[in-house]
């Protein structure tokens, strides 16, 4: 269910990313694969210099990733509301509310935090 719903939205987010010149600057040093996992459904997002090049649905044990966001589908949908409710307004809210986790090389995430947060927030602007 979540997997069927998520791929079009992630793809649209990648297209929206292309139109954001400031994110090209902010993401210029970001070439990593990120795992977004929603209730067991995996999506491997591979960025190159701030552009989303590929989205590979899982499951996979072969695709290395730098950091992962694991969250339940309802929490992610709340995050993508135009005005999210408190606790769902930021990716760290998933951790704080116990609805998800952020794992892996967190320092890479933090070094690129504004870029990645703004990428994730694009889900509020695109059609699901």
């Amino acid at each position: 269910m979540a997997r069927a719903d998520l791929l079009p939205r992630l793809t649209a987010m990648g297209a929206a990313l292309e139109t954001r010149a400031h994110l090209h600057r902010l993401g210029a040093l970001f070439s990593e694969t990120v795992l977004i996992e929603v209730e067991g459904d995996e999506y491997y997002l591979t960025f190159h210099r701030g552009a989303l090049e590929t989205i590979t649905p899982g499951p996979s044990r072969k695709i290395p990733w730098r950091f992962a966001i694991r969250v339940d589908a309802e929490a992610l949908e709340k995050f993508w509301q135009p005005i999210p409710e408190a606790g769902f307004h930021d990716i760290f809210g998933f951790v704080k509310t116990g609805r998800g986790s952020i794992e892996g090389d967190i320092l890479v995430l933090v070094k690129n935090l504004r870029f990645f947060k703004e990428f994730m927030a694009l889900g509020r602007e695109v059609q699901a």
């Binding site: 005005i83 999210p84 408190a86 930021d90 933090v110 070094k111 935090l113 947060k117």
Partner: peptide, 28 residues
């Protein structure tokens, strides 16, 4: 709920990382 040492490193801009972190505490 974060590692404070993230915000003072020779290989990254602590201010930009700090701002991106505290944006989690700003209401939409």
């Amino acid at each position: 709920w974060y590692d404070i040492d993230w915000f003072h490193r020779p290989d990254a801009h602590g201010g930009e990382m700090g701002a991106a972190l505290v944006s989690a505490n700003i209401a939409p």
